[in-house]
Write a protein that binds this DNA or RNA. Sequence first.
DNA 1: CGAAGGGTTGATCAATTTCAATCGCGGTGG
DNA 2: CCACCGCGATTGAAATTGATCAACCCTTCG
Lengths: 240, 240
Amino acid sequence: MSNQFVQKLSGLAELSPNDVAALEAATARPRRYAARQDLIREGDEPGPMFVVLEGWVCRYKILPTGTRQIVAFLMPGDACDLHIKLLAEMDHSIQTITAARVATISRSEIDALMDNHPNIARAMYIAQLVDEGVMRAWIVSIGRRTSPQRVAHLICELYLRAHNVGMTTGESFDLPISQIILADALGMTAVHINRVLKELRLAGAMAVNRGSVTISNPVRLVQIAGFDENYLHRRLRRLI
Amino acid sequence: MSNQFVQKLSGLAELSPNDVAALEAATARPRRYAARQDLIREGDEPGPMFVVLEGWVCRYKILPTGTRQIVAFLMPGDACDLHIKLLAEMDHSIQTITAARVATISRSEIDALMDNHPNIARAMYIAQLVDEGVMRAWIVSIGRRTSPQRVAHLICELYLRAHNVGMTTGESFDLPISQIILADALGMTAVHINRVLKELRLAGAMAVNRGSVTISNPVRLVQIAGFDENYLHRRLRRLI
DNA sequence: CGAAGGGTTGATCAATTTCAATCGCGGTGG
DNA sequence: CCACCGCGATTGAAATTGATCAACCCTTCG
């Protein structure tokens, strides 16, 4: 399958070869970014739609005190904000975590894609609904789960999302994310994340090494997390 | 202005008298619900779109341990999930907090509204983007703000949203929400919410009495919250 | 009148943050 | 080639926040 964007959307709606070709054309000229580059900042006027083709990206907000909260991770195949152009300004920033290849699709291109390819429109709407479900799950995690549960839940989510676009190998996947970034995503301190990761490692549930995660005991990890994949609305219900 | 739904959408796009009439017709036959009734539950098949016309409603999820996290408040004028029918099942539940009047609009009615009234479509898309911004702001609050900041921030948000649909009187507004519900929304315990409310009252920032909130010192409240209204994307930038 | 559900308060406990120090690794300039 | 630097990872100890446990009060409602 050509790229993760096509692969992801194919999982959400039936795409014809014609649809696939249109998606490939729209993402044919991605731009490369170094790590830690803002694609767009809070307060900026929204631009074209971003589609991540390679690397990891996040949405985040900075508080007056300077602390940061990451509100979403984007991995290859993930796109941003279909109708974002309707807003006058961005309410958050988007930044690369690793070096990345990101395609931009202009408003008119999107409109053309959606108008001429109903199945693409359908898939994009579903993707947006899933993204909202993911945000709700984050609120639940941060609000009500203990820190080990929270970390475990995020890893379960990322594993499944990566799996969905063919980016896992067995029970491992690349997670090129520092403990600092994990802390910013989970509303914790890096110190505490470190201790929780150790705890999960000692519990035999999962281990992080040099930018990749291995889920040593999927059943245990899911138990710890209290993970229910329903909010990812996947067509293919594989057990992990 | 006829109802809060029309009022809210009018603030997001120019609506013609014809558009307004169509919205009124679509919400003409609301259903009444008692307090604490689920409109729909996690796992259910999505139904029609809900539009709250009177009363308060929330989206929530229940954890395996039985604790609850509220992920959004819906007040009069707020609608749910434009394209939700594209999903096979709900990933969260929706429940009335108070007695409420809620209109339901079927998929086909929505499609007709959106197709025949581009400005309604535009307004609904903007409303959805704003709802996403609100969710991001919740993640930030729960993840990174202290409890007094968190409470203050939520009150600022709710005040502005209420103000937007004409539901404030001076610096007060109805907030028919128990401390338990506040706790479920902010990821805290009711006991702690109680102490924080006391602290905010003593600080002269705001006070809650019998289902209504008075913002005694807006400037102080905004300061405490570190509140920036940008994420609500309001057209009318009034200072509170 | 009694029961139930919120609200309020105090005392104690547990989870996390904060502060501080050390370690290790990759990259860089001398 | 190697010492040095900066960033992330790791660990310990102290400080703080918020949760938990346990009363008790007040109002509403049957």
